[in-house]
Nucleic acid binder design. Structure first.
Lengths: 214, 214
DNA sequence: CTCATATATCAACACCTGTTGAGAACCTGA
DNA sequence: TCAGGTTCTCAACAGGTGTTGATATATGAG
């Protein structure tokens, strides 16, 4: 069973009968491979075999491995909505909403989580993925926190990178302690910390309530 | 200037005169390459060229690329001491000490930071590095927190993975907001959050001090 | 001095990679 | 029916990879 084996021992040469759904099949196979094996370990020949197609077909559709990867990393709108709604208000449940949004995005349906997973796994070895993750960490939380204190951007970036770190440890590195915990346990511990980072308790911009510290 | 160029156009064939320091030179070159380029992008031929040595020499010394990588990932005792001392007590500065320990370990002298950097960069693509990072996140903080509440392991793992996430964003992904901030800024924001994760404020085990909150 | 051993280079191996060009089979519209 | 474009397979290329065996030179022990 080598990688080149595309199923039937003698696939006919020309176009297959019926409407073509191969383009989507290739993209699906690529998303799954990139998400689970990373950019470097995913070869065009493997993706082609998964989609039961010749490798040169993948090239004809997507031009190059990088472009295929870019297509596989495209984050669906539904996943982005999760974040937009989570960062709506600045009440005392901001932390919990944000934590739940991150965990849900990486643990939801494959169609949503795989592009994020691919982005995370590819970020270290692929310049494209690195830029995308950079933008994700920088801007995702900022929509909601615009116009607050001057270090709002730093706080948003820190909270985001911390949660990405948690997700990476849990789903990619596979740290047992984190991987075995269920979502509610994680939220219980993480939410207050993230809340404190995003909405720091009374420092100087807001008036200090009397009698807090002697 | 190809990669194979080892400096002199016609290197003599046998052993070089004088005492041999090549073994260490190869290890140093490997550490630097693995730390800056990652496991996959680092080739034995590149390391050999950096050390001005033939590629087969690297194999003769370290057996395989994986074993060379393992040697490059060996974390020096001085770096480990940083963590051991940081997690000493459970006072109200635990968070700050831990945060500073993490940031310092990844920003100190190359001899200390490169193995950690190599571990981080390799963790996604190399099984060996993945296991090492797993162990690092799991056990590093536990030495100090043993015998506390039952979710101490979870809290320690979460704090560790969060800080690894911050370091990754700052030094590997290169998120501008985090990369441009200096250490004290980061500590100011992170320390209270990490403190809260490691030593949760007054739940039930420790008695609440009177008059803290009205 | 002599000889085992560690150090060093060279050439080549078998394999895998992304990518390309040619051509076959099918679909669509005129 | 018959072009024209799309989809699909085959075969091969050029380059890079980790790794190996043969061979040459220096060191160090006896």
């Amino acid at each position: 069973m080598t990688a080149q084996d595309t199923g039937s021992p003698k696939a006919r040469r020309g176009r297959r009968p019926g409407a073509s759904s191969t383009r989507q099949a290739v993209l699906d196979a690529a998303r799954a491979r990139f998400a689970s094996d990373g950019f470097a370990a995913t070869t065009i020949r493997l993706v082609a075999a998964d989609a039961a197609v010749d490798a040169s077909q993948v090239m004809q559709f997507y031009g190059s491995k990088d472009e295929l990867f870019a297509a596989a990393m495209a984050i669906p709108a539904s996943a982005l909505e999760r974040f937009s709604t989570a960062f709506g208000g600045h009440d005392e449940h901001l932390g919990e909403r944000v934590v739940r949004a991150y965990l849900a995005a990486w643990e939801g349906t494959p169609a949503e989580s795989e592009p994020l997973m691919a982005m995370l796994r590819g970020a270290i070895v692929n310049e494209n993925a690195s830029a995308q993750l950079r933008a994700f960490i920088e801007s995702r939380l900022l929509e909601g926190t615009s116009g607050r204190s001057d270090d709002a951007a730093l706080r948003a970036g820190l909270a985001s990178s911390m949660l990405v770190g948690v997700v990476t440890s849990r789903r990619i590195i596979g740290v047992p302690t984190l991987a075995d915990a269920d979502t509610d346990e994680l939220v219980a511990v993480l939410a207050p910390a993230i809340q404190q980072i995003l909405v720091p308790p009374a420092t100087r911009t807001t008036p200090i309530e009397p009698g807090s510290t002697p």
